[in-house]
């Protein structure tokens, strides 16, 4: 046994299954999340990605299998338990309150206070200072802490949520489709923050259905398909083209591109068909 040499993963999922009545949402899923690594969970709609995160973040209990945090088997009673164990989720739309200032958002739900009894009040100076510092660590210079979060770009809003999770002790950071609603440029900014969080030693779980976003930042890739583990690869074991093909299901894409070609009377559609054919063929688009 080489157990003594093995690093204990921050978070480990062992043969976990989850049933909703007769629906098998997840079956026999295993994965590991290490500090300083980005683990990408890839899968089409309905593959079970959200269900997996909900188990990891304490929203749902798992039905079979084991969940281990730093080597210890755990059963979360709720999201608070998960957060206490250092697992934080940044949801796409649940991240921040747009009309509230950056500093108020940063400390929302965990406000620092001064004084006691009826004189207890927010420690606004401290809150602004810490928020500035933490955002600075992500490479963002906040000039006006009173600026409403709603006036930030989508990528910056995610940055606020990530910085907040890190400041409040997250060891494992779960990002649920953080780029799905963003444009190319904003997605790039978010990917930069993902890398930054990894560099600070966090274990990052990056949920996406876009292999083009996952591949550049990921260290390992977990593919889900209809609730089953389709494969689990280190970056050295796979390529972007392979990931793309596996995710979409090669034959299906090929069929789709043929159909599109038949219907294609407009140049844009032809272009789409060609791209599909390319991805199905495994050549990088």
């Amino acid at each position: 046994m080489n157990d003594s040499k093995k690093v204990i993963p921050l978070l480990e999922v062992r043969n976990v299954s989850k049933y909703f009545g007769s629906v098998i949402a997840l079956r026999d899923i295993s994965m590991q999340v290490n500090g300083g690594e980005v683990t990408c969970v890839l899968g089409d709609n309905g593959a079970g990605k959200s269900t997996l995160i909900k188990i990891l973040s304490g929203v749902h209990p798992h039905d079979d299998g084991e969940l281990l945090v730093e080597g210890h088997s755990v059963h979360f009673g709720g999201p608070r338990d998960a957060r206490a164990a250092g697992i934080s989720v940044v949801f796409q739309d649940l991240a921040t309150v747009p009309l509230m200032s950056i500093w108020r958002n940063f400390f929302l739900g965990s406000e620092p206070t001064l004084g006691i009894g009826p004189a207890r009040r927010l420690d606004i100076g401290f809150a602004k200072k810490v928020m500035r510092e933490e955002m600075g660590k992500m490479g963002i210079d906040v000039r006006d802490p009173n600026q409403p979060v709603g006036t930030l770009s989508g990528g910056e809003r995610q940055a606020v949520a990530i910085a907040r999770a890190v400041y409040f002790g997250a060891k494992v950071l779960i990002l649920d489709e953080p780029t799905s609603a963003l444009g190319v440029r904003q997605s790039g900014i978010v990917l930069k923050y993902v890398v930054q969080a990894r560099e600070r030693g966090l274990g990052v779980i990056f949920i996406t259905h876009n292999p083009h976003h996952a591949f550049p930042v990921g260290d390992r890739f977990v593919l889900l398909n209809r609730g089953r583990l389709m494969g689990s690869f280190a970056k050295s074991e796979t390529t972007l083209a392979e990931l793309t093909q596996m995710m979409a299901g090669g034959e299906e894409l090929e069929r789709l591109s043929k159909e599109l070609e038949k219907m294609a009377t407009e140049p844009e559609l032809e272009q789409v068909a060609r791209e599909l054919a390319q991805e199905a063929g495994g050549k990088p688009g």
């Binding site: 949801f91 649940l94 309150v97």
Partner: peptide, 10 residues
């Protein structure tokens, strides 16, 4: 402002 976001952060 956003009850769901508020709930999500406790």
């Amino acid at each position: 402002g956003d009850a769901n976001a508020a709930r999500a952060v406790g």
